[in-house]
Amino acid sequence: MTRGPGRAGRVLLGALGLIGFGVLLEVAPRLGLVPAAYAPPTSRIAGALADQTRRPEFWEALADTLRTWLTGLAVAVAAGLVVGVVVGAVPLLRAATASTIEFLRPIPSVALIPLAVLLYGSGVRATLLLVVYASFWQVLVQVLHGVADVDPVARDTARSYRLGRLARIRFLVWPTALPYAVTGVRLAASVALVLAITGELVIGTPGLGKEIAIAQTSNAVPAMYALVVVTGLLGVTANVATRAAERRVLAWHPAIRAEVPA
């Protein structure tokens, strides 16, 4: 491991990066490098964002997006964990499903939009289908790897001590798979957000994505970018939150312990 800047230093550098990006977006249209009508400077986007926060529709859309995102994520995580542990623990099942999973996993969720609309119209369930489909695989594949990663010596030891099936899952499989599962949840959280916004944008289910589409058809360019910024901020928040949860859940894990200076 290389010795990087400390925690405070990382936050500072991250903030500097964001500010630098903001300044670039402010300067480029003002210098005429990009047309300001289609790529407004940061200050105008910030103004539009302030306008948005005064609209009740904005807060409704934000709540809708959060609801779709978290519901989809919860379903995907629960299903991924259960299916992952069951399939991972039974070698026969694992061998039988491996090729099917590898076939289904790379199918882009967006390609399922026609199916989703056919099944559920333009309601929220159509977008949920996309969200669950995309994020389920992230969790499942990680859990499968985690379950397969059980240390052979530990497994033999557990067998020597005649641990039952449940005890083995609790004391052997679960601690081994947990770091993988948590990584899966973190990946799934951002994928689920992307798909929630995409579904709203393309299918038209209520949420920030739909507000972006309305801003587009209203030729409200700064408002559209303001909403895009909000989705970006949501993504950052999701990442920070899942990382914090990761540190808490895996406080005992060597990879996390090493991050804490002695």
């Binding site: 119209g121 333009s122 299918i203």
Partner: peptide
């Protein structure tokens, strides 16, 4: 009133009873 993306996107919605 619910807004959809395109005029013809609404046609299936009406035909299906949504």
């Amino acid at each position: 009133l619910s807004t959809s993306q395109g005029g013809a996107a609404i046609v299936p919605g009406v035909v299906s009873g949504q």
